[in-house]
Computed example of a mutant assay.
Amino acid sequence: MQDASGNKYISIFKPIDEEPLAVNNPQGLPLSTNGEGLKRGTRVGEGALREIAAYILDHPKTGPKFLSCNEIGSGVPPTVMVQCLHKAFNHPEGFDGSDANIKTGSLQMFIKNHGSCEDMGPRDFPVEEVHKISVFDMRTANADRHAGNILLHKDHETGKIVLIPIDHGYCLPEKFEDCTFDWLYWPQARQPFSQETIDYIKSLDAEQDLAILKFYGLDLSAECARTLRISTMLLKKGAERGLTPFTIGNIMCRETLNKKSIIEEIVHDAQNSMLPGTSETVFLESVSRIMDAALDKILM
């Protein structure tokens, strides 16, 4: 979307009904037969909510922010839910300008950039820039982090490179099956976290995050809330043991399509150890014990 002059991009609007596999998706993709999105553990029509949740959860180092806060965390652009009317959107049944043509979706601020990380090799990316995105992706169990949705901005005077993460419609899934982190293959991922980043990770609180999302009207499903709790738990335990983003990320991502990841195995083992009717608190305590054993084994 452009400003009134038509010379400057200011925002990006993503209608809910035009998401992949949704009823009005402009790519002509078949409709989802079971409500599941392109990524396992996500649902068609929830992408906009996840985009907003990603912005709310992108805490700066000073702690959780309000939507009007100018401080940034990993750099997720400000994102809100809006209603929008325009003939350029996909209207299969025609556009007459009536209320029936109004679209609901996420509106995200357009950030000036010099392309995406697909356009250049990762060699010159600052370690802290890669780490800030790795922390965010692991914490939210992002199922769609590829180099194309990390924008790059380079200051012409200082040469400083800043990475900007976008497209978070597949974060906070109901399960870990499709976690994908392209930065795993970048050399910076094998570098240890700085003390500042470790302190930031220590400050993360999944229960507080869930309360903040609820305050803004985003009440996650029990399955998605569990994902946030477990991914935050893993990130904190991994950082405490001095593990790199590469090691922690590999625990969350599948080695092959049909082989469960370590985090999936941990969750599976915890589920098998529980009696019917077990509380979520007791289940998470079981996950914590099994996770500790798995991490200690990695460190041996």
Score class of each variant (00 low, 15 high):
residue 160 K to A: 15
residue 39 K to F: 14
residue 42 T to C: 01
residue 97 G to R: 08
residue 251 I to Y: 13
residue 291 M to V: 08
residue 223 E to I: 03
residue 95 F to Y: 15
residue 49 L to R: 06
residue 172 L to A: 08
residue 293 A to Y: 14
residue 121 G to V: 04
residue 266 I to N: 09
residue 142 N to H: 07
residue 107 L to I: 03
residue 125 F to R: 02
residue 20 P to Q: 02
residue 274 M to Y: 00
residue 218 L to C: 01
residue 137 D to H: 06
residue 250 N to D: 05
residue 4 A to Q: 06
residue 279 S to H: 03
residue 285 E to K: 13
residue 60 P to Q: 09
residue 295 L to I: 14
residue 137 D to A: 13
residue 50 R to S: 00
residue 165 P to Q: 06
residue 245 P to W: 07
residue 145 R to W: 07
residue 150 I to N: 15
residue 80 V to Q: 01
residue 166 I to Y: 13
residue 235 L to V: 03
residue 24 N to A: 10
residue 117 C to P: 10
residue 222 A to Q: 12
residue 36 E to T: 11
residue 84 C to H: 12
residue 173 P to M: 00
residue 81 M to F: 11
residue 228 L to P: 00
residue 211 A to K: 15
residue 186 W to I: 12
residue 266 I to T: 03
residue 158 T to Y: 13
residue 77 P to D: 11
residue 92 P to Q: 06
residue 27 Q to C: 13
residue 113 N to A: 01
residue 265 E to S: 14
residue 224 C to W: 00
residue 31 L to C: 03
residue 62 T to Q: 07
residue 108 Q to R: 04
residue 175 K to T: 12
residue 113 N to W: 00
residue 66 F to C: 07
residue 45 G to E: 03
residue 262 I to R: 15
residue 137 D to I: 11
residue 191 Q to E: 15
residue 290 I to P: 05
residue 143 A to N: 04
residue 20 P to F: 08
residue 187 P to L: 00
residue 170 Y to W: 09
residue 156 H to V: 09
residue 108 Q to A: 15
residue 96 D to E: 07
residue 154 K to G: 00
residue 184 L to G: 02
residue 89 F to R: 05
residue 49 L to Q: 10
residue 138 M to H: 07
residue 102 I to Q: 05
residue 289 R to Q: 13
residue 180 T to Q: 12
residue 250 N to Q: 15
residue 178 D to K: 09
residue 111 I to S: 01
residue 160 K to H: 08
residue 188 Q to W: 01
residue 241 R to C: 07
residue 136 F to A: 15
residue 201 I to V: 12
residue 268 H to M: 06
residue 94 G to F: 08
residue 206 A to Y: 10
residue 128 E to T: 12
residue 107 L to S: 06
residue 234 L to D: 00
residue 173 P to N: 00
residue 133 I to R: 09
residue 124 D to F: 07
residue 132 K to M: 02
residue 158 T to S: 14
residue 179 C to T: 09
residue 64 P to I: 11
residue 172 L to H: 03
residue 192 P to L: 06
residue 72 I to A: 15
residue 239 A to S: 09
residue 223 E to A: 08
residue 135 V to M: 03
residue 8 K to E: 12
residue 96 D to A: 11
residue 237 K to F: 05
residue 271 Q to C: 07
residue 149 N to L: 12
residue 147 A to T: 11
residue 54 A to C: 15
residue 256 T to G: 03
residue 174 E to R: 04
residue 106 S to N: 04
residue 238 G to A: 07
residue 83 Q to P: 00
residue 183 W to S: 01
residue 160 K to F: 11
residue 67 L to M: 14
residue 215 F to V: 04
residue 222 A to Y: 06
residue 100 A to F: 04
residue 294 A to R: 15
residue 61 K to E: 02
residue 20 P to S: 04
residue 283 F to Y: 14
residue 44 V to G: 03
residue 244 T to S: 13
residue 167 D to E: 11
residue 122 P to W: 10
residue 276 P to N: 05
residue 276 P to Q: 01
residue 70 N to A: 12
residue 129 E to F: 05
residue 40 R to W: 13
residue 295 L to S: 01
residue 240 E to H: 14
residue 31 L to V: 05
residue 104 T to S: 14
residue 239 A to Q: 03
residue 93 E to W: 14
residue 90 N to G: 06
residue 84 C to F: 10
residue 72 I to R: 13
residue 249 G to T: 13
